[in-house]
Nucleic acid binder design. Structure first.
Lengths: 137, 137
DNA sequence: CTCAAGTTTGCAATTAAATTGCATCCACAT
DNA sequence: ATGTGGATGCAATTTAATTGCAAACTTGAG
C-alpha cells in the first residue's frame, strides 16, 4: 500500500481492507475515471457488490466523486488535491466522445453562473464533451 | 395542436403524430424537465417504448436535450429559444435536492472553462445541485 | 496474544431503467 | 385514394444498480 493510499484512508477513518486498498490505488493511478465494470475488469476476482459498496463508502467520505457522462454507467474519480480543498463545489470533467474516457479537470477553474432569485447551490458539476488530445486525428 | 408545436415539428421535418404532439406539448408546458416515468404518468395510455423512441427522435433532431441529474433516471427538457440558437454549446440545469425537479437555466450564461492543450469541446453540460425557490424554507 | 463486537465481503437474488424485435398501423407524398 | 416508409404497441430482453444474508474479516480492549 502506498503512503498516499494509507494516508487517504486513515484521514477519512475508513477501515483498511485489501479491497479498499486495491480499488483506491486503481483509481489513484488511472488517468481517467472508472466505472464499476472497468474496476471489475481490472480486479477480476473482486465482487461487483463489494466494488459498489466500496465506491459508495469512498463517495460518502468525499474521497471520490461520481460522474455521469454520456455513457450508460456512472464513473468514479478520486478527488484531486485541488478538488478536495472544496469538495462540494466544482467538478469539471471532460468526456471524450471518441475513446469514451472521462478525465477530471478539477484544476481548471471556471466562472460560476448566476442563479435565479432564491435559488441556492451546493454543488456544481460540469461535463464537457469533445475530443481529448490522444484522440485528435 | 398549438402553433408552436406544429412549427417545431415541421421545422425539423418530424412526422406529426398524436404521440409526438402530446409528448412535445407536455414538455413545452412543463416548468421542469421530465423523465420517461413522468411522461408515462401524465399520459397513462402511452407506451413506454413509444415515449422512449419519441424522445430519442426529438433528441436526434435537437428539439430537446437529455439531462443526467442525481436521480436514477434521465430527464428531458425542450430546448429554449436561447438554447436553440446554439444547441450544442451550453446547457446549465438546476437540480433541486428537495423536490427532485430539474430546471433548465439556459438563459443564464457562464464563462466557459479553459481546456488542456489539444482538447476540443463540442458541448458543455452543467448541473447545479441545490435548493430551488419553491423549496426554500 | 486472544477474543468479542461491529464491519466488510461474497454470493445470489432483486429492482428498476433502458432498449430491442416484430407485426401492425398510420402519416403523408404522389 | 393509395402505396410506402416510418411510427406504434406489446412483450421480452439487456444491463446497471442495489439489497439480504451468512460467513469472514479488522480492530480495540483486556
Amino acid at each position: 500500500m502506498s503512503a498516499r493510499t494509507e494516508q487517504l484512508l486513515k484521514e477519512k477513518k475508513i477501515k483498511i481492507t485489501a479491497n479498499r486498498i486495491l480499488i483506491l490505488e486503481l483509481l489513484l493511478n488511472s488517468s481517467h475515471s472508472l466505472s464499476i465494470a472497468d474496476i471489475e475488469e481490472d480486479l477480476p476476482w473482486a465482487d461487483r457488490a463489494t466494488i459498489f459498496r466500496t465506491l459508495k463508502t469512498f463517495e460518502d467520505n468525499a474521497l471520490l466523486h461520481a460522474i455521469k457522462d454520456n455513457e450508460k454507467s456512472v464513473k468514479y474519480a478520486v478527488c484531486s488535491d485541488a478538488c478536495q480543498v472544496d469538495h462540494h463545489k466544482i467538478h469539471p470533467h471532460f468526456h471524450c466522445d471518441v475513446c469514451g474516457n472521462t478525465f477530471c479537470l478539477s484544476e481548471y477553474n471556471f466562472q460560476l453562473p448566476q442563479l435565479p432569485d432564491n435559488y441556492t447551490a451546493n454543488k456544481y458539476s460540469l461535463i464537457i464533451n469533445g475530443i481529448c488530445s490522444n484522440c485528435q486525428k
